[in-house]
């Protein structure tokens, strides 16, 4: 089958994976992005970038786990800095029931006691007597990995234009990865606001994402290396992408402080918020409208789903095969 001229709109995590996958499959790929600077308008720029297919099943459908597991393989094959340290779930003593519920709702974990927890994360020694360890989960640094994907796509021959949102006239296929910006075309799409902050501290060292369960303010901390930590994230039914509110900042900071008092001395490096695109079932979709293909609705699972969705798009273009739960 002859290779195609493909234009991808939107250079967030979804569009970057589409670009890299399709250019490596031999297509002539142009990636265009409205914002002038890379990743400025992308909600994935604010992501935690955990690759947690098992833990996410606490509040998501089985499809997320299935696509997510495939994505981890693709991340590992593609991006050498994929951190495969697993992830740890803990709760304060009075929230142990949240831990039981989490255990019941998910798979791929083992129960760990205080000594296992302190072997894995010495700085949490003596603070948590029970936890769940998801050995097969991973994480990446969102900005570094997005940079990597962009450079890799360009090295493989993709043409990239920032500050542009019109597709060139001669293109066989348009792959629309604009996230919430595609709402005018996709009526059911809505925004779900996520807020997070970044802190820096030398006083605590974590080597894997840690989630602290709480009935109202569940929180995760993702180590970015060099003392940087992402603390996230709120989940608010709103497509407002404006600055973090004081209330959300208080929630995030006080929960981080509860996770470990060392966060009390950390420097706040940045606050940020994005509107994550979601369909009513919070599941991703690939919507084929002739030669215009939407890949959207990645919700809070951008990094977890983007590689697998890119693979599905590439397979569809190659063979016409459609995954029944993703394509419509």
């Amino acid at each position: 089958m002859p290779k195609k001229k493909i234009t991808i709109i939107g250079a967030g995590i979804c569009g970057l994976w589409q670009a890299l996958t399709l250019v490596r499959a031999g297509h002539a790929v142009t990636l265009i992005e409205r914002s002038k600077k890379p990743f400025e308008g992308a909600c994935s720029f604010y992501a935690g970038a955990m690759l947690a297919p098992f833990a996410e099943e606490e509040g998501a459908e089985k499809l997320i786990r299935e696509l997510g597991l495939r994505s981890i393989e693709l991340w590992r094959d593609t991006y050498p800095d994929t951190q495969c340290e697993g992830s740890l779930i803990i709760a304060q003593p009075r929230d142990q029931k949240e831990l039981h519920r989490f255990e019941r709702m998910t798979m791929g974990h083992e129960r760990v006691n205080e000594s296992r927890i302190s072997e894995m994360e010495p700085d949490l020694k003596g603070r948590y007597s029970n936890g769940l360890f998801f050995a097969d989960e991973a994480h990446v640094h969102p900005h570094q990995s997005m940079d990597f994907l962009l450079n890799a796509a360009e090295e493989a021959g993709a043409v990239v234009h920032f500050g542009r949102d019109e597709a060139p006239g001669s293109t066989d296929l348009l792959i629309d990865c604009r996230g919430i910006a595609a709402r005018e075309d996709l009526g059911e799409l809505r925004g779900v606001r996520g807020e997070r902050l970044v802190v820096r501290t030398e006083e605590i060292n974590l080597s894997r994402p840690v989630r602290l369960l709480h009935p109202r303010f569940p929180l995760y901390v993702v180590p970015w290396g060099y003392g940087f930590y992402l603390i996230g994230a709120t989940q608010i039914e709103s497509d407002e992408a404006g600055p973090v509110t004081v209330r959300s900042a208080l929630d995030l900071l006080s929960t981080a402080y509860a996770l470990h008092p060392a966060f009390g001395e950390a420097e706040v490096v940045g606050f940020g918020a994005g509107a994550r695109p979601a369909f009513p079932d919070n599941l991703p979709r690939i919507i084929v409208k002739g030669d215009h293909i939407h890949v959207n609705g990645l919700f809070r699972h951008g990094f977890l789903l983007a590689p697998a969705l890119a693979e599905l798009t590439a397979r569809y273009i190659e063979t016409g095969e459609t995954h029944p739960e993703v394509f419509s």
Binding site: R190, R193, D239, E240, G242, T245
Partner: peptide
Amino acid sequence: RREAARARAGQGF
């Protein structure tokens, strides 16, 4: 409280 907080931003929901 939050959905509507700014600019009627919770319209989708």
